[in-house]
């Protein structure tokens, strides 16, 4: 009886360890409810796997934009977007953004792009979650004087497909095949 309990305990510990060791592709994004009222434009999108599946059924394959979207979301489990734009320079709660950024310092996440555009006055960081050699998540944080955007894509991301989206949705060719810079 005692041996049996020990076995169960070991099994539970193993499961718990596996659960904590597995890198989390889905980030805990703050609600930013208070910002929506102050923003001139706000986008708050939460598409889990069910909604993605539902959306896929309503994509028109005859439209190139829809066809490209269908191809991209094939292996995805969720897309989460929080984007706020303000009419004037606005001090948004950077602590919330930093909290998101902190989650990206977890093992598995790699920052592949970190750019500062002086022209756009924007900092854009792109992170990819690598799991067993595959990209299983993508996070993008863009901060500008008059707004910020956080995008979290969960699931198996085919970077080649992302490349092929060039020309759709304004997605350009990205240097994703370059060696990623280590996370600081």
């Amino acid at each position: 009886m005692r041996t049996h309990s020990r076995k169960w305990l070991c099994l539970l510990l193993l499961i718990a360890r596996a659960a904590t060791a597995a890198p989390q592709a889905q980030l805990q994004l703050p609600g930013f409810e208070s910002l929506a009222a102050q923003a001139s434009e706000s986008v708050n999108i939460t598409l889990d796997s069910n909604l993605l599946g539902l959306a896929a059924r309503f994509l028109d394959s005859n439209k190139p934009e829809d066809a490209a979207a269908r191809e991209l979301i094939g292996g995805l489990k969720g897309i989460y977007v929080r984007s706020y734009t303000f009419d004037r320079d606005f001090t948004y709660p950077s602590a919330d953004v930093e909290r998101v950024r902190k989650q990206l310092s977890a093992p598995g996440w790699q920052r592949v792009v970190e750019v500062h555009s002086r022209k756009e006055q924007a900092n854009v960081d792109i992170y990819i979650l690598m799991d067993q050699g595959k990209a299983n998540g993508l996070a993008l944080i863009s901060s500008e004087p008059r707004g910020f955007t956080i995008v979290n894509i969960v699931g198996s991301i085919d970077l080649q497909k992302l490349h092929r989206l060039e020309g759709h949705f304004g997605i350009p060719r990205l240097p994703l095949d370059e060696k990623p810079s280590p996370t600081p």
């Binding site: 309503f58 977007v81 984007s83 500062h116 555009s117 894509i153």
Partner: peptide
């Protein structure tokens, strides 16, 4: 479904817009 589809297109548009900034930079 239509609402989800529109949200998906909007999400990809926002993502594309920000990727474009990174690309241009």
């Amino acid at each position: 479904g239509i609402e989800a589809r529109n949200q998906l297109i909007e999400a990809l548009r926002v993502t594309g817009e920000k990727l474009d900034i990174a690309y241009r930079a």
